[in-house]
Simulated scan of single mutants.
Amino acid sequence: MPRLLVADDSDIMRTVLLRLLGPHCEVVAVVNGQDAIAAAASQTFDGILLDIRMPGIDGVAACRSIRSGGFEGPIIALTADESVSRDPEFASAGFTDLIEKPFAAETLLNRILACFEGDQGES
C-alpha cells in the first residue's frame, strides 16, 4: 500500500482526501507547506499531494524544497486556480502532475494511483 503525504490548509479538503485515499493508501495529512517539508525530510513517502495555495510556505515553494531534499517520487499539485499551470514558477518546481479542484473522486484517485505505478518503494 503506497504511503502518501497530503498537505492542505483546508480541514474539509483534508477530510475529503483522507476518506477518499484512506482505503487505497496510508495517508499522513499536514496543514501547510512547512509541515510538508518537515514530514518529507523525516519520514518515507511514496508520493506527495500538495495544495498550491497555502498560507506561509505555499505548495510551489514546498515542492522545490522537498525536491532539493532529494525526494524523487511523484509530487502532485492540487489547486482551484486554473492559471497555475501557466505560471513559470510552477512549471519549474518539480511537480509530476496537476489536479484541479473541483475534481471527480474517481478521477483524483485514478490519477494519484497511476503515479505510483512503477514507483513502489522509491522515495
Rank of each mutant, 00 (worst) to 15 (best):
E122M: 07
G69S: 11
R19A: 12
L49I: 15
E106L: 14
M1K: 13
L17C: 10
G47V: 02
L21Q: 09
I112E: 03
D87S: 06
R67I: 05
E106M: 10
I57V: 15
C25G: 09
D97G: 08
G70D: 00
T107Y: 15
V31L: 03
G47F: 04
A40N: 01
M1V: 13
A114Q: 12
S123Q: 14
D119W: 12
P102A: 11
S10R: 04
S83M: 04
V27M: 09
R86M: 11
S10I: 02
E89R: 15
Q43N: 07
E26N: 10
F103N: 03
V28Y: 06
C115H: 05
E89F: 07
C115N: 14
E72R: 15
F103V: 05
C63I: 01
I112Q: 02
V28Q: 09
F45D: 03
H24E: 12
A91G: 03
G121M: 08
L50H: 11
S42K: 15
T79H: 06
D58N: 14
N110V: 09
G33L: 03
P74V: 07
V16W: 03
I112M: 08
E117W: 02
L18K: 15
D58C: 07
L113W: 10
C63A: 04
I66K: 02
E82A: 14
V6R: 12
I66N: 00
Q120F: 14
D97T: 10
I48Y: 01
R53F: 08
G33W: 05
C63H: 00
G47I: 02
T44Q: 13
R64F: 03
P55I: 05
D46F: 13
A77N: 12
A62T: 13
A80M: 11
Q43L: 08
I76N: 06
V31P: 01
V30I: 04
F71Y: 02
L113V: 11
D46V: 12
A29Q: 00
P23D: 07
L20R: 02
V60A: 04
S65M: 09
T107G: 12
A104M: 12
I12E: 15
E89W: 10
A29M: 01
A36R: 05
G56F: 01
R3E: 04
R111Y: 08
F95R: 10
A29C: 03
Q34T: 13
E72S: 14
D97H: 11
D51Q: 04
A61N: 08
G56E: 02
A80V: 07
R53P: 00
A61P: 03
S123A: 14
